[in-house]
Design a protein around this nucleic acid. Structure first.
Lengths: 242, 242
DNA sequence: TAGTGGTCTAGACCACTAC
DNA sequence: TAGTGGTCTAGACCACTAT
């Protein structure tokens, strides 16, 4: 590679160099890239400069550092195409793509007052309560998305009794309430995860995720569910067909 | 605030503290937060720890550091709701929201061979050429989005003669070719910008953006335009109605 | 000139992994 | 035990802004 002589911005040149190595196949998926100290010697720079470079390519999704072991080239493709439409949900999406190994985990649930935002989206009055569920979805062994789902208590009597053996929210709605909410609108966003979300999703704190806030309607036409999903952007692309 | 006694992770506590200050109104929009050296004294930590904390809240969108001046609280709301549908384009979106001050700038254009991805999306054969435009859009004085738009040469004879006084791509298509492409599908992504894109969009390199790849069809039904837009996530939310 | 953020060197200690 | 990444202290020089 070309010599680095100019002052400053060494970290970006090292980051570019490492990306070129990965692109050109010098380091392949799941390979370990050289350790920080090896890169220090190679480039004659301080360790912090190398760390800065590795941080950048980590955030860009090229490598994943593992304490005590090294930094490893991430798997490149975004295998999951997550179709966003009025009817599709997580389960349908997985099955339409032939993904067999998925599962939901109900992290916790609560009954309480909605936030102002939730109240507005669900058109609730000031004393209406909601159920709030936190659901973690996996594809294979990898966390894929986190969703906060909010349901008006009034519309779902005795909802909590169905949560003991939670497997699928939509199974509950169909089995117990005999209807399926219809997505009426979604708002998408690129954000960085909170520290808690990053931990649960198994990604570094500076890797962007997609945030999708959706309003779901009762078949009769009024809003009945509000959900905010945070989805690993390194594992999926969101597909919208018109 | 509470004393920081535990070892390590000071930077996250300082970041949280600063966020709380902004949330609670101690520092308001466009206010300068304390300088790095002031925060060093306040927390009895080294400057690099403070910088780490400020980096985090910068990436989260709370502040924008300006060399020689300080770090300033960013404007909070995401004012632009960008509706994604089969017919809406940038211009319609701005006007439907009453945004008057927008403009497009054609950064450059070229005629050449498509990439493999472009060829597939546009269903071109191996010797078909394309026009490729790079367009920067502004809202007020702020860069808002960058778009790479690819058009088959064969479908747009003498396209380049219309680019001299570029104002709007869709004005050209309607005026010169008498049709308007229809969005058939979009794929959304949360990513970090390239260094060039970050520069053009006027954002730090670790602030996430939304990437929207769209295929537009000729009214007769076949693909006629492929575009990849990179949109500042701090300025907009993408709205989809079903 | 003084103050600010941006980058770099130098080196310490810790936690985790592998042997 | 040796090697790795994670965090922190200490201090240098630079570029930019304000006065």
């Amino acid at each position: 590679m070309k010599m680095l002589k100019e002052q400053s911005l060494h970290h970006l040149e090292i980051a570019d160099y490492l990306i070129q190595c990965i692109r050109s196949g010098v380091y392949k998926v799941n390979d370990k890239i050289p350790s920080e100290s090896e890169l220090c010697h190679q480039f004659h720079v301080h360790r912090h400069v190398v760390r800065h470079a590795i941080h950048r390519i980590t955030n860009l999704g090229w490598v994943t550092p593992v304490q005590g072991k090294g930094s490893f080239v991430s798997s490149k493709p975004k295998p999951i195409l997550y179709a966003l439409s009025s009817k599709t949900r997580f389960t349908e999406n997985m099955e339409s793509q032939g993904v067999q190994q998925y599962k939901n985990e109900l992290l916790y649930w609560e009954q309480g007052m909605p936030t102002e935002e939730e109240r507005q989206h669900l058109r609730l009055s000031m004393d209406d309560e909601v159920y709030r569920l936190e659901i973690l979805r996996f594809i294979g062994k990898h966390p894929f998305s986190l969703a906060t789902t909010v349901l008006p208590v009034e519309e779902f009597p005795d909802f909590d009794v169905h949560l003991d053996n939670y497997e699928s929210l939509y199974q509950i709605l169909i089995d117990a309430y005999h209807f399926q909410p219809i997505r009426s609108q979604s708002m998408l966003d690129a954000v960085l995860p909170s520290l808690v979300d990053a931990e649960l999703l198994g990604i570094p704190e500076n890797v962007p995720i997609v945030k999708i806030a959706s309003i779901m309607n009762h078949p009769a036409g009024y809003p009945i569910e509000y959900s905010v999903a945070r989805i690993r952007s390194d594992m999926h692309q969101c597909l919208i067909e018109f």
